[in-house]
Structure formats: structure tokens, C-alpha cells
Design a protein around this nucleic acid. Structure first.
Length: 501
RNA sequence: UCCUCGGUAGCUCAAUGGUAGAGCAUGCGGCUGUUAACCGCAGGGUUGUAGGUUCGAGUCCUACCCGGGGAGCCA
């Protein structure tokens, strides 16, 4: 291994110099005396030009032999080249084949989800996955920076627990030396413990939910960041959540331009993610949801879908008519276009099927229910940035939430909803401080008091106002990267029916 | 659990109930700058499974299996 090898991402600072690159062949284009090799090294991708007259025979035949994902060492000079991503390419002087790859299953063309998921261990090498997971990395870094700069202490909550926080139906149960134990659903309660010991803390760990949800927003194993702060009320909690999200988005916007470009992410909506976020109470949200304004937005959306579909269908008909009379290469273009059209029409059809239900759900929404996925999406349509909804009916929130002193029906909870249909990325609130209230809540939720004695102790020994929230890492990354599915935001997604690789 | 869409070549997809095709990938040949390169040729199929309707089924019907998306629930 060559210690002097340069990372692709650093090449811009090596223009005009001779370098050694180590990596894998992502794609190759050939003409008689020239190979264009796209070399991937994990830090980026660079085009390497291998010209027959510039290299020796061994190098030339190595370049000829190299298949997709073959491992290579390339030597050459870095030259500036306007048309390349990153602005540089390598003029190769030597090619060494380290390992000849067998026929690679993931080709440069499209593949289906199931096929790719079965090959997740290889799929991770693809550009989109690279971009998505680099954004994940940047977000994780920002999370730690944000809290560490503010004097928060990182404290891990246990993953194995003896008690449930949320409903028991979504718990993964395991055998713990003959007793039942559960994989954690939230570090919440332990976070409160640590906040009483360290003041301001945050947990960062995996969370498990045995929900039988098959949607683009659900994983059975996901990562959650849960800050918990002593002497914080609901407003301070919302301020923190707002600053936090702005920071994550702006860091990615600044440091992940290449990744966002690769994902074809429209960055305008991200640039608008600035404080303050609209803060609306649950009751105001219900009013908004059931208002004519929401129905108008739905109507407009339905019309847009209809117009788009008509245009696509007209184009489809045109293609069908002309198909028999055109040249081969044109026909191929038409085939490709036809596939894109079919896919989009499928999406529109589904949206058109769902829209009436969305409208009905919004129109008939009654105070007291929790918002469904479509309701949340509709609420975010009214705004151009994330929104915070606070003061939910106590009945739909967790037992440990503090009641609103001004209205006992309400809990001092808050959710942050991401725009563009990505839904809830934060859930949290101010915690109840009163021992007797909590004991009653535990009883009413049918939970065993004994299991919460240690939690009750926090209210016996110096109980103070405190608050916190949980941020879903994968949903956040999915939203920032505008990814179609949450499974692309984590290296090895765990979902219903998916445990491997 | 329910609703909905789908399963055709290694992959992605076509195919008014009437001879199963295209692109990519693979192999061979061509091309001095390509950007999912391009051009030519070749090999590649028990249309998810089991029944049924029909002169004839990839296409219609029934059941089952597998997958996508959504509801419920949630980050």
C-alpha cells in the first residue's frame, strides 16, 4: 500500500502534480487508443484518462482488462478540466490491476429496490448511497458539535431495558437470563436521570420499534438523538429544537455541495430553513387543517397532477404513433422516455387515489385525535419551512408529559414537522415534575409502578422543570437529502422482512 | 391486520387474447476526448406457483407465494 497515495477529494490542490491513486473502477468508456476510467476511492470519483501512447504495454492491458469494481492503482498527472465533477482529471502514466472483479451485478443502469436491498453490501458503493451516507456523517458531526459547543454532556442510555416507555405492542422482547427484557424504544427516561446529574445532556443511540409499518418513513432499528435539559420549559425546548435543525441543515448546505448535487437536491427549500419556524398550537393546527384553505391547496394539487398526467399521456401516445417509423437510436431514446413516463404516471395514479382520502381525513378531523401522516403533510404545505406544533391533547401523548397549567386537557408536548412531506422529525416536550401526578399517570396507562420507582425518585429528590426531545436521525437525513426512502439513510436498514445483509 | 399496485432474459422494462421484444450487462469487432459514450454482430426465456376459461393465455378468472406503496402506530 502506498502511503503517498492521494485521496480523490484532495486532488483539486494537486493540479499539475504527479500523484498515486488507489481505488475501484466505477465505470469505463473506451475508444481505440483511449480508456476513460472513473475511479472511486471512497472520498470521491475522478475520471482517469489512459492514452495508449502515454503508458507501457502492461498498463494498457491492465486498463483493457479492468472490469467494473476491479481494484486499481493509477499513477499520473492531475490536470484541471472544466467539464469534470471536482474540476480535475488524471492523465495516467501507469495502471496497475490489484484485483480483477467478477461480473458485477449492479450495472450503471436502473435496478429495482428488492434487487438492490439484497445486495446492500455492494449497493453502498454506488454514488447515490455514497452521497446520502456522507450527508448522514456530516449530520452526525454537526449534532455532536452543536451540543458540545453548548455545554451538553453526551450520555448513553441503555439499549436493554426492563420497562416499556411507549406501548408494549411495539417492543422487541428478548430473553434476559430467563426474564423478559426489551430493546429500548427511547432513551427518554434515562435521559431525565442524567439531566438531573449533569444538567444538560444528550443521548445518541439506536432505538427499536417492532411496528409492522411498511412505509418509506419507517425502520425497526433507527438512531435517535435525545437532548434533555434541567431548568428548561417548553419555550426554551422549542428554541433549542429550532436552532438545532437550522444548524444541521446549514452545515450540510455549506459542506456537502457535491453530495447534494449528486442527489439532485433542490437546495432552495434548504436555504429557507432559518429561524423562526412557525409555532402553532394543536388547536390552531386543527383549525388550519379543517379550513377551506386546506381544501383549496388539495384542489390545486389535484389539478396539477391532472395536468401533468394529461401531458404525459399525450406524449406517450405520440411515442406510440411514431415508434414504428423512426431510426434505431431514436427508438432507444423513446424506450427510455417511455419507462420514465410510465413510472411517473404510476406515482400520479397513486397520489390521485390517495388524495380524496387526504381531503376527507382533513375535513372531518375532530379535536382530540392525533394527526395522521397525510394531515401532517397538509399542515406543512401551508408554510415554507419546518413548523412546530405544540400543546397536544394529553390523551395522545406519553404519560410523562407535563399538563398545560392553563388548560388541563393539554400536554406541553411539541413536534417539529419537516416540509416536503417528510413529516415528524422531532417529538418532545416539557416533563411532568409532580410525583403524584406521575404515579397516577403510570396507573392509568396500565404500567407497573414498581418498574418506575427509580424514575419517581427524580421527583422525590430535587424535582425541577425540565424538557427535552428526540430527533430521528434517518428521517432528518432523508429530508435534507430529499431521499425517496429512509432505507437509503442508514448503511444497513432493518425493516419489516429485512435483516440481511 | 386491512387497502392498493406489481411479479416477463442476469438487470430495467415493452408486448388491442393471436410468431415473447428493446436497452443495459456479457462476448467479439469498429471508433483519438468519452460523460449512464457511441456503432455493428452474437449468445441469453418453463412470462412467480397451482388450477381454470378459450381453437389459442404473458394478457381473462380463482387460490396461494413473494415484493413495492399506503392506513393504523410512530422518529
Amino acid at each position: 500500500m502506498d502511503k503517498s497515495a492521494v485521496a480523490v477529494e484532495a486532488l483539486a490542490t494537486h493540479v499539475g502534480k504527479a500523484v498515486v491513486l488507489q481505488g475501484w473502477l466505477q465505470n469505463k468508456r473506451a475508444s481505440k487508443n483511449l480508456y476513460f476510467i472513473e475511479l472511486r476511492d471512497g472520498s470521491g470519483v475522478v475520471q482517469c484518462v489512459v492514452a495508449k501512447r502515454e503508458v507501457d504495454d502492461a498498463s494498457w492491458s491492465a486498463a483493457a482488462q479492468a472490469t467494473q469494481e476491479s481494484a486499481l492503482v493509477l499513477r499520473g498527472q492531475v490536470v484541471a478540466h472544466e467539464r469534470q465533477i471536482g474540476g480535475v482529471e488524471l492523465q495516467a502514466s501507469g495502471v496497475e490491476l490489484i484485483s480483477l472483479a467478477e461480473e458485477y451485478p449492479i450495472t450503471p443502469k436502473a435496478h429495482g429496490v428488492d434487487f438492490l436491498m439484497d445486495r446492500r453490501h455492494l449497493w453502498l458503493r454506488s454514488r447515490r448511497q455514497w452521497a446520502a451516507l456522507r450527508i448522514r456523517n456530516r449530520v452526525i458531526m454537526s449534532i455532536h458539535e452543536f451540543y458540545q459547543e453548548r455545554g451538553f454532556v453526551q450520555m448513553d442510555a441503555p439499549i436493554l431495558t426492563g420497562s416499556a416507555v411507549e406501548g408494549t405492542s411495539t417492543l422487541f422482547e428478548i430473553d434476559y437470563f430467563g426474564s423478559p427484557a426489551y430493546l429500548t424504544q427511547s432513551g427518554q427516561l434515562h435521559g431525565e436521570v442524567m439531566a438531573m446529574a449533569f444538567g444538560k445532556i444528550y443521548t445518541f443511540g439506536p432505538t427499536f420499534r417492532a411496528e409492522k409499518s411498511k412505509t418509506r418513513r419507517h425502520l425497526t432499528e433507527f438512531w435517535m438523538i435525545e437532548p434533555e435539559m434541567a431548568f428548561y420549559d417548553l419555550d426554551m425546548n422549542m428554541d433549542l429544537a429550532e436552532d438545532f435543525i437550522v444548524r444541521l441543515v446549514q452545515d450540510v448546505l455549506r459542506d456537502c455541495q457535491a453530495e447534494l448535487t449528486m442527489l439532485k437536491r433542490d437546495t432552495a427549500p434548504l436555504a429557507r430553513v432559518q429561524a423562526p419556524f412557525p409555532r402553532i398550537s394543536y388547536s390552531e393546527a386543527v383549525e388550519l387543517l379543517t379550513s377551506p384553505k386546506t381544501q383549496e391547496l388539495l384542489q390545486q394539487h389535484a389539478e396539477n397532477l391532472h395536468t401533468e398526467r394529461s401531458a404525459l399521456e399525450a406524449e406517450q401516445a405520440q411515442i406510440g404513433k411514431r415508434y414504428g417509423q423512426v431510426k434505431q437510436w431514436k427508438r432507444r431514446q423513446m424506450d427510455a422516455r417511455r419507462i420514465v413516463i410510465n413510472q411517473r404516471i404510476g406515482e400520479i395514479e397513486e397520489a390521485q387515489r390517495n388524495l380524496p382520502q387526504w381531503a376527507e381525513s382533513a375535513r372531518d378531523f375532530v379535536w382530540g385525535k392525533d394527526f395522521g401522516g397525510s394531515d401532517e403533510t397538509l399542515l406543512t404545505w401551508h408554510f415554507d419551512r419546518p413548523i412546530i406544533i405544540h400543546r397536544y391533547p394529553a390523551a395522545v401523548k406519553a404519560f410523562y408529559m407535563k399538563r398545560d397549567p392553563e388548560d388541563d386537557r393539554l400536554a406541553l408536548g411539541m413536534d417539529v414537522l419537516a416540509p416536503e412531506g417528510y413529516g415528524e422529525i422531532i417529538g418532545g416536550g416539557e416533563r411532568a415534575t409532580d410525583l403524584f401526578f406521575l404515579q397516577r399517570q403510570v396507573d392509568e396507562h396500565g404500567l407497573p409502578r414498581e418498574a418506575f420507582e427509580w424514575y419517581f425518585d427524580l421527583r422525590r429528590y430535587g424535582s425541577v422543570p425540565h424538557a427535552g426531545f428526540g430527533l430521528g436521525l434517518e428521517r432528518t437525513v432523508g429530508w435534507i437529502g430529499h431521499l425517496e426512502h429512509i432505507r437509503e439513510t442508514i448503511p444497513f436498514p432493518r425493516m419489516l422482512g429485512r435483516l440481511s445483509p
